Amino acid sequence: MTWTETEYRAYLAEERRLYAWVLCRYGDRTPEEARAAALGRYPYEPAEAPLRGLVFHDEAWHWAMLTLHGEGYWRRHPELADPPAAYRELADEA
């Protein structure tokens, strides 16, 4: 996918926001801890990076659940396989 720099930065910010929200809501992380984790999960990648934005192939919900519950969380916690309505509403706000 090719984005303008503005589009990339906006998408990056949105994914960080959603990831942090999940960590706060489902992982009992403080907002500061969640924001720091989001920056680590979604670092800025320069335009010339060959795989820039590859992390976007899965949504923030999935990456956050992997962080909180590990690989295969969807089998151990099938109720977490899909994001809840509150997450979707938050995502739709952007």
Rank of each mutant, 00 (worst) to 15 (best):
T4E: 01
E5Y: 00
T6D: 06
R9W: 01
R9L: 08
A10Q: 10
Y11P: 02
L12N: 11
A13M: 08
A13L: 09
A13Q: 11
R17W: 04
R17M: 05
L18T: 03
Y19G: 02
L23V: 05
Y26L: 11
G27I: 07
G27D: 06
D28G: 15
D28K: 15
R29C: 14
R29Q: 14
R29V: 09
P31L: 10
E32I: 15
E33C: 09
E33Q: 15
A34P: 03
A36P: 11
A37Y: 01
A38V: 00
A38C: 02
L39V: 11
R41F: 00
P43Q: 02
Y44N: 00
P46N: 01
A47F: 01
E48Y: 02
E48N: 07
E48K: 05
A49R: 02
A49S: 06
P50L: 06
L51V: 05
R52L: 01
R52C: 02
R52T: 02
L54H: 12
L54F: 13
H57S: 14
H57L: 13
H57Y: 13
H57N: 15
D58M: 12
D58A: 09
E59R: 15
A60M: 10
A60F: 10
A60Y: 10
W61S: 05
W61T: 03
W63H: 11
M65D: 01
L66T: 04
L68K: 05
H69Q: 00
H69W: 04
E71K: 08
G72M: 13
G72T: 14
G72H: 10
R76P: 04
R76N: 07
H77S: 03
P78N: 12
L80A: 07
D82H: 14
P83F: 12
A85P: 09
A85F: 12
Y87F: 15
L90E: 09
L90T: 09
E93C: 06
E93G: 08
A94N: 14
A94G: 14
